[in-house]
Simulated scan of single mutants.
Amino acid sequence: MLGDEKSVILSFDDGPAPLAALESILQTLRQEEIKAEFYVLGDEVRQYPEAARMIVDQGHDIQNHSWSHSDLERATEQSVRSELERTQNIIKKTTGVTPTKIRPPYGAGGFRGHLDPELVEVARDLSLDIVTWDIDTEDWKAPQGLGPEKINNIESQFEQQPRKESFNILMHVQTGTARDLPAFISRLRGWGFTIAEP
């Protein structure tokens, strides 16, 4: 089977808003007894502090996804520092948790072999590991969510990495994903994957 003796971690970018989608995702994770990681935007944490606290209170990891979803690879060192530092500070102030990972928006400057030197330097200064993903659900593309076409694409991404044993699956906090998440989780389990804690 596709997922025999393999595990996945569920991760969600761009939260904590929209709030209805976040609440639905959190409810599904609670029902399925899954812990996930949320890469949040500093500016949204500023606008929706309760939502950020909800993520942490329910036992999920909260991590840095920049302040304003800018392309950090093209940004100056000063701008990268501001994007990451402000986000670290607001997450810590709001939730009491200091993030340990940065997932750059679009993965820009974050992939091995294409690491952006300014991002590397700032991340090191802030004790952040730069992370990306192994499986891109493309859940944001129309039609939004995790429907049959997306599932076929996800399956082929797993098949293209036969030696890998642990996968990080990228999703987003959005309505379509929230709607399709229960079916997607049961599909992953049907493939034989264990859903691991981040």
Rank of each mutant, 00 (worst) to 15 (best):
K101S: 12
E118F: 13
A142Q: 13
G96P: 06
D180F: 00
S156T: 13
S127K: 13
Y106T: 10
W133S: 05
P104M: 06
P148K: 09
L188C: 02
L181G: 10
W140S: 11
R103C: 08
G110P: 09
L146T: 07
P99K: 08
W140N: 04
G107S: 08
H172A: 12
T100D: 09
V97L: 09
H172P: 06
V122N: 05
K141Y: 01
W133E: 04
I102Y: 10
R187K: 14
Q144E: 13
E159G: 05
G110S: 04
E118R: 15
F167M: 11
Q174N: 09
Q161T: 00
V131T: 13
T137F: 05
K141G: 05
E165I: 12
R112M: 09
G107I: 04
E149A: 14
L188M: 12
I135Q: 01
L170N: 01
M171G: 07
E155M: 05
D139M: 01
M171T: 05
A142Y: 12
D139E: 06
R179F: 07
A108K: 02
D136C: 09
G113V: 02
G109S: 08
E165L: 14
P148R: 01
Q160Y: 04
T98K: 15
Y106F: 13
E149D: 15
Q161G: 01
A178K: 03
H114K: 15
L128K: 03
V97R: 12
Q160F: 04
G113E: 07
E155Q: 13
F158V: 08
K141W: 03
D136L: 10
W140V: 05
G147Q: 12
L115M: 14
E149N: 13
Q174R: 13
D139Q: 08
I135S: 10
T177K: 06
K101Y: 12
K164R: 14
E165C: 04
A108Y: 09
I185Y: 08
D125F: 00
E149S: 14
F111P: 01
D116N: 15
T175H: 13
G113S: 06
K164D: 08
A183H: 07
V120M: 14
S166Y: 02
I154V: 13
K93R: 12
T137S: 13
L119E: 05
P148D: 11
T177N: 02
I135K: 07
R163S: 11
R124T: 05
L181M: 03
H114V: 00
N168W: 05
Y106C: 02
T95M: 02
K101I: 11
D136G: 07
V122H: 08
T98Y: 06
E159M: 13
W133D: 07
K164I: 03
A108N: 05
L146K: 05
K164C: 02
P148C: 00
I151L: 15
R179D: 11
L119M: 03
A123W: 00
D139L: 00
F184P: 12
F184I: 10
T132V: 14
G147M: 00
Q157Y: 01
